[in-house]
């Protein structure tokens, strides 16, 4: 082996060791301290209108019926728990669902934005996924952009009379992919490449995270479908109470 090959080998062993030791938090949270201060503030400000809209809708729901308070809190805890549990993955690495697709389909994007920021805060403090300064950027990608795409797609598919299971899969799968694309762009904006600027940098981030994110998005889609099937079978009345199934649809 030449000297260069030896160095390469050592580097790849070190890399592999880190992957074996570190439980890879695959949900694509931008870690604490990764973004420059300006970007942290900017993404936070961009999230504000969505959060305010979410807060107002939350307030109205609670005023309408106080029982909704515990219901929404349970939904938030449900999203947190689902996203903190290890999911069956092919590679054996430890990965998590984002749960955003499921949340958006069940609760609507407005409620998810405010629940999302709370869940992300808890994930940062309790699980060290994401961080306090990157809360704004993570909220935008996971609690605003992803859910909006999921929600929009789901309803578009339903309008087009696509099979419910297919539309759930598409919504969760593409919502997850969109989250991953938005995060890559966020990273690229903060750290443009020297040769090629933001565009090239975005491509690089997309490429680097693709091997973990693409299978994850497929798994997320499949799991969301399995969960929704389970819910339709066992939780008709509950789904009706949160407005997911219309009365005639829930037998």
């Amino acid at each position: 082996m030449t000297k260069k090959e030896k160095i390469l080998l050592k580097a790849s062993i070190a890399l592999a060791a880190v992957f074996a030791v570190a439980p890879a938090s695959n949900a694509m949270h931008i870690m604490e301290g990764y973004l420059p201060a300006g970007y942290c503030v900017a993404w936070g400000v961009i999230c504000l209108p969505f959060l305010i809209a979410g807060f107002v809708s939350l307030k109205n729901k609670v005023r309408e019926n106080r029982r909704n308070m515990t219901l929404i809190a349970m939904a938030g805890a449900f999203i947190f728990v689902i996203s903190s549990l290890k999911i069956p993955s092919v590679t054996g690495s430890c990965s998590h669902m984002t749960g955003t697709g499921l949340g958006a389909i069940l609760l609507g994007p407005a409620a998810v934005s405010i629940l999302g920021i709370i869940v992300l805060l808890f994930q940062a403090v309790l699980l060290a996924h994401g961080g306090l300064t990157t809360l704004g950027a993570n909220t935008f990608s996971m609690a605003v952009a992803g859910p909006f795409v999921s929600f929009g797609l789901y309803h578009l598919c339903r309008k087009l009379k696509v099979n419910r299971r297919v539309s759930v899969f598409l919504a969760a799968f593409l919502g997850d992919l969109f989250t991953y694309c938005v995060t890559s762009i966020q990273l690229a904006l903060a750290y443009p490449s020297e040769a090629g600027g933001v565009g090239a940098s975005a491509l690089k981030f997309l490429g680097v995270f693709a091997p973990t994110q693409l299978p994850l998005a497929v798994i997320e889609g499949i799991l969301t479908v399995v969960i929704v099937i389970g819910l339709e079978t066992y939780a008709g009345p509950e789904l009706k109470s949160i407005g997911f199934l219309r009365k005639k649809e829930a037998k």
Binding site: F19, P23, A24, S25, Y34, A128, H129, F205, V208
Partner: peptide
């Protein structure tokens, strides 16, 4: 915990 993200990023 965040090492994987940091490495890839």
């Amino acid at each position: 915990v965040p090492a994987a993200f940091l490495l890839l990023g």
